[in-house]
Computed example of a mutant assay.
Amino acid sequence: MSAERPPAKVGTGFASGGATTDNVDSWKTSFPCTRAEAEAIDAGEIAIDAVLMTTEEIEDDRERWRLDAYTETEPDAAMIAAFRALVPSAAAVAPVIEALTAEDWVAMSQEGLEPIAEGRFVVHTSAHPVSPPAGGRAFLIDAGRAFGTGHHATTSGCLKALDAMAARDFASIIDIGTGTGLLAFAAAHLWPEARIVATDIDPAAIDVTRENMTANGIAGIDLIVADGALDPAITAGAPYDLVIANVLAGPLVSMAPELAAIAAPRATILLAGLLETQRAQVVDAYSVCGCTLTGAEIRGDWTILTLTAGAERYVPTKPIDPKGRDGWALDI
C-alpha cells in the first residue's frame, strides 16, 4: 500500500516534502479513485497539459486506487476541478498536492521496484542491478514516462508467455503499445534473427524505448509512432507471425479487425491489459476476425490471452476508420 502523505495547500509555494518554488521541477495532484474510474480515464478528456497515472494502492481491491496528475505548473482551481471530474467518487475529497524536484522524480521512479524474474528474464532498475540467470537475459528498465517496467501483472505475464514460446520460430514480430519496449526486447532476445517492430501512440514512449535500447545494448528494432495498426509503415511490413498488444481491453476490442488484418495465417496473437471480467468481450471481438483462443493465464484480476489467427489471412469486411473505432467499443 502506498504511504499516506498529509495534504498540502495550493498556492503557498510549498508542498509536502518541504520543496520550495525555487527548486520545484513539477507538481503532482492526487485523488483517490476506484478501479473502474481508473480504467475509464482518458487523457483526451481534459484540455490540460498533464500526465495522468493510476495506481492500485491495495492489490485486488476495486475501491482503493489513486489518480496522480503531473503538471509543469502549480495546479489552479480549474486544473483541480478537471482532475476531480475524472474520478467522481472523490467529489468531496481534498486533493493531495506535492511540489516535486528533479531528485523527487528519481526517488519516486525507483522506489519499491525490486527486480522481477519471469522465466529466463530478469527486469531491474538502475537502483537494483542484478545478473541474469544462466542462459537468460537481464533488462535495465527504469520507471519513467512510459508503461512497462515489468512489475505489473500484465507485463510480467506477457514475459512468461513469450518465454514459453521460445522453441517456436517467428520471423516477423510487432509489439503494439510498446511502452518502455520491454516486450519487444524480450522478443529480440528469443528470436534474434526476426524482424521486430515496436509501436506506440505516444511519441514519448518511443523516445523511452529508444533510450532503453541504448541502455541495454539492443539494436535492430524498428520504432514507429502510430495509433493502432493502420499506419502505412505498419501495414507495409505485414503480415506478422507474432502480434503482441499489451494495452487495455477497450483498445484491444476496437483494434481487433486491424490487428487480425496484419497477422499472418496461423499467427500467434498475444493480448494483455484486460481484466478477467473483460475476457469474453475481447475473445469475441477476435473470434469475429477468425482468431481462436488457445491459451489464457489469470494473474489476480488480470488475464493474458494467447490466440491463433485463422488459416487464411483476415480481410476486414469494411474499411477501418480510426476515428470510427468507437463502434467497436468495449461494453463495460
Rank of each mutant, 00 (worst) to 15 (best):
T199A: 08
A226L: 11
A90F: 11
M165G: 01
A187P: 10
G250Q: 11
I298E: 03
F139N: 00
S254L: 01
D222V: 12
D301A: 13
P115Q: 08
R279M: 08
A264F: 09
T21V: 08
D321R: 06
A134W: 00
A261E: 14
I224Y: 14
E37Q: 14
A153W: 02
G300M: 02
M53N: 10
G177Y: 01
A78G: 02
G324T: 10
G18N: 08
V253Y: 04
F147G: 01
G148N: 05
P319C: 12
L242H: 05
T308K: 11
V243R: 15
R299Q: 05
N216A: 07
P115S: 10
T180P: 13
V24R: 15
T73Y: 13
L113A: 05
E4F: 05
A94E: 14
H151I: 06
V247G: 01
F83E: 09
R84M: 11
A82N: 02
A77D: 10
T73Q: 14
G179H: 05
L230E: 10
A164D: 08
A184D: 04
G273C: 13
I234T: 03
Q110S: 04
V243A: 12
Q281K: 03
A204I: 01
A164C: 12
L274A: 15
A146E: 02
T306D: 11
T55K: 02
S16I: 05
L140Y: 07
T317M: 06
A38Y: 11
K9F: 07
A260H: 06
M165Y: 04
T292C: 07
G148Y: 00
A161M: 14
L330D: 05
A309V: 11
R195T: 11
D68L: 04
S254C: 13
C158Q: 03
G119F: 05
I262D: 02
R145S: 00
